[in-house]
């Protein structure tokens, strides 16, 4: 329009640039901190250009850990990865088959089943944290990957997302398949699953980030340091008694903890946006 004048353009660039700087600055500082030794950071005059301790810090963090959290960060990352992948794949698997049942079959209590699942949409794990903890403990699942993963799969988002997608698949496709001699299994494998690939990928991206970033649940149910996830590990590296905090290791770990999910968002941006927007509909 007429008002697309240079000044408005300039203001847009300026605002966005400030936004980008504010968004990036804390992370930039963390990256810088991961290239110095403790002393440089502690004295409060950390330079804003990289130091020369990066190799040392990353090697130590990845393979030896810090003084407070003695587990190597690479181990924590493996744990986080198992948890994130477990949640993502677990949720995709159980929700795609349950959505298939709800949408493509008529069976007794179908509506009830749908509502039973649907209600869970409303309540995050945080509100039922101790009773859930008790059940997981009773099942002997403390300090296990199963215990980390299972309770976080119990939600309706995936089922609703797939249901929503299945509803957009034309009825005629199922009818054509029936005439082509495909039964419930073949229709799922040959037609529905290939068509759902984008939805699956989008859900995967969202659930991977969700799983990787979990905090309260792993905090409660992991007691062994060998089961620790990286997000929990960082918290343990920082104490209120500042003298003990190895900031360079903590920041190195923070950078390492951000890398996988941030890369996923940047490189799978289209799927990420799709997943985010559609799970919230």
């Amino acid at each position: 329009m007429v008002e697309n004048r240079p000044f408005a353009q300039f203001m847009a660039y300026l605002t966005l640039a400030i936004g980008v700087v504010v968004v990036a600055f804390p992370v930039y500082l963390a990256i810088m901190a991961s290239t110095f030794d403790t002393a440089t950071i502690i004295n409060g005059n950390m330079p804003l250009t990289p130091g020369n301790q990066a190799a040392e810090n990353y090697t130590r963090a990845l393979f030896y850990g810090g003084k407070l959290a003695r587990e190597p960060v690479s181990m924590m990352m493996v744990n986080s990865m198992i948890m994130a992948l477990g949640i993502a794949f677990g949720k995709i698997l159980i929700s795609i088959i349950s959505a298939y049942a709800v949408v493509y079959f008529k069976f007794p209590f179908r509506k009830t089943a749908f509502w039973v699942i649907f209600i869970t949409l409303m309540l995050p794990v945080e509100v039922r944290i101790y009773p859930t903890y008790k059940i997981v403990a009773d099942l002997g699942l403390l300090d296990t990957y199963t215990g980390l993963i299972m309770p976080l799969i119990a939600s309706a988002t995936g089922t609703l997302l797939f249901r929503q997608f299945f509803m957009t698949v034309p009825d005629e496709l199922l009818e054509a398949s029936k005439i082509d001699g495909a039964g419930a299994f073949r229709f799922f494998k040959d037609t529905l699953l290939p068509l759902s690939m984008t939805t699956i990928a989008a859900l995967f991206v969202i659930q991977f980030i969700y799983g990787w970033n979990q905090y309260l649940w792993p905090l409660l149910i992991t007691t062994k340091s060998s089961m620790q996830t990286i997000v929990i590990g960082i918290k343990k590296m920082i104490t209120t008694t500042d003298a003990l905090t190895e900031w360079q290791i903590a920041m190195t770990t923070a950078v390492l903890a951000m890398v996988p999910p941030v890369l996923v968002v940047i490189f799978m941006q289209r799927l990420f946006v799709k997943g985010l927007v559609e799970t919230e509909k």
Partner: peptide, 8 residues
Amino acid sequence: PYAVAPAI
């Protein structure tokens, strides 16, 4: 930043 864990 959506991808950054709240704790981090």
